[in-house]
Amino acid sequence: MIRLLKRYRLWTKILTIALLSLASKVQEKTFYDFSARTIDGELLNFDVFRGKKVLVVNTASECMLTPQYKKLQELYEEYGGDGFEIVAFPCNDYGNQEPGTNADIREFCKQYEVTFMLMEKISIKGEDPFPLYEWLTDSKENGTLDAKVRWNFQKFMIDTTGHVIDFVGPANSPYNHRIIEWLNE
């Protein structure tokens, strides 16, 4: 009986260590482990955002939500700089509302005087989704939440340690109370 109890304790310890190790591996990957090309084709390692809050947004030029570019720019002007960045990913997956090239998108965004970070056009759905969005939307990848991207202009909040902490749906303004509260924390 004592032998059986010792064996049980040993297996319990091994299982606990294995589960803790697995849990820490899920949390090991952060926003800083990713990179992407800017709208101008330059590779950007997201480690440059270390210590900043980051709002990640999938965008589209021909969407009824496209005027959110103006609100995103206003939010960036108010909160951006040393502690906050916006990273926008044009995407044509939702209603084919971003059909243009990167050059077309860059030119289009001039009307909104966009100064936050615009990345090259990506795919979120389908057979080859952009890896950052796999991480953002899957709790097994990000260790925090599951969040299906429902449409253009879904906003993901990344904390100063590179972890996704929340998201706000497409129809919600960039000035949504959850985003503002998060920025003011």
Results as ranks from 00 to 15, higher is better:
residue 84 F to W: 08
residue 91 C to A: 13
residue 133 Y to S: 01
residue 119 M to N: 09
residue 49 F to E: 06
residue 70 K to E: 15
residue 90 P to Q: 08
residue 74 E to G: 02
residue 60 A to Y: 04
residue 59 T to L: 02
residue 100 G to H: 09
residue 108 F to G: 04
residue 48 V to R: 13
residue 67 P to K: 14
residue 10 L to P: 02
residue 72 L to Q: 03
residue 101 T to F: 11
residue 121 K to P: 05
residue 50 R to N: 12
residue 99 P to Q: 13
residue 77 E to D: 14
residue 3 R to G: 11
residue 15 L to G: 03
residue 74 E to T: 12
residue 120 E to P: 04
residue 130 F to K: 02
residue 54 V to M: 05
residue 121 K to M: 04
residue 109 C to S: 08
residue 22 L to Y: 15
residue 36 A to P: 06
residue 34 F to V: 06
residue 6 K to Y: 08
residue 9 R to E: 06
residue 40 D to N: 13
residue 6 K to I: 14
residue 74 E to K: 12
residue 37 R to P: 00
residue 105 I to K: 11
residue 32 Y to K: 10
residue 14 I to G: 07
residue 31 F to A: 02
residue 98 E to H: 15
residue 76 Y to Q: 02
residue 12 T to S: 11
residue 129 P to M: 09
residue 106 R to L: 14
residue 87 V to G: 02
residue 128 D to R: 14
residue 70 K to V: 02
residue 112 Y to W: 15
residue 44 L to S: 11
residue 84 F to K: 04
residue 57 V to T: 06
residue 114 V to G: 03
residue 91 C to Y: 05
residue 80 G to Q: 03
residue 80 G to T: 02
residue 120 E to A: 09
residue 35 S to R: 14
residue 131 P to N: 03
residue 89 F to S: 05
residue 16 T to C: 12
residue 114 V to E: 01
residue 40 D to R: 10
residue 110 K to H: 09
residue 14 I to M: 10
residue 102 N to M: 12
residue 44 L to W: 01
residue 80 G to R: 04
residue 27 Q to Y: 14
residue 9 R to P: 00
residue 53 K to V: 04
residue 34 F to K: 04
residue 82 D to M: 09
residue 124 I to H: 00
residue 80 G to H: 10
residue 96 N to T: 14
residue 71 K to C: 00
residue 73 Q to W: 00
residue 76 Y to C: 02
residue 61 S to Q: 13
residue 10 L to V: 04
residue 67 P to F: 10
residue 53 K to Y: 10
residue 126 G to K: 07
residue 63 C to M: 02
residue 55 L to C: 10
residue 89 F to Q: 01
residue 59 T to N: 05
residue 24 S to G: 00
residue 87 V to T: 03
residue 61 S to W: 02
residue 34 F to P: 02
residue 101 T to H: 06
residue 123 S to Q: 11
residue 57 V to R: 01
residue 13 K to C: 13
residue 58 N to A: 01
residue 29 K to N: 09
residue 15 L to N: 04
residue 54 V to A: 05
residue 48 V to L: 06
residue 20 L to W: 11
residue 70 K to D: 11
residue 114 V to M: 05
residue 11 W to M: 10
residue 67 P to V: 07
residue 49 F to K: 09
residue 127 E to W: 03
residue 94 Y to E: 08
residue 81 G to M: 07
residue 29 K to W: 03
residue 13 K to L: 15
residue 44 L to C: 10
residue 133 Y to P: 00
residue 79 Y to P: 04
residue 60 A to R: 01
residue 109 C to I: 06
residue 122 I to Y: 07
residue 92 N to S: 11
residue 37 R to W: 08
residue 124 I to K: 00
residue 120 E to W: 07
residue 33 D to T: 01
residue 41 G to D: 11
residue 42 E to H: 13
residue 8 Y to Q: 09
residue 123 S to M: 01
residue 67 P to R: 12
residue 34 F to Y: 15
residue 45 N to W: 09
residue 88 A to G: 15
residue 18 A to I: 13
residue 131 P to H: 09
residue 135 W to Y: 15
residue 2 I to W: 12
residue 136 L to E: 01
residue 85 E to D: 14
residue 92 N to R: 12
residue 32 Y to T: 07
residue 58 N to L: 01
residue 26 V to P: 05
residue 108 F to K: 08
residue 20 L to F: 15
residue 63 C to Y: 02
residue 75 L to Y: 03
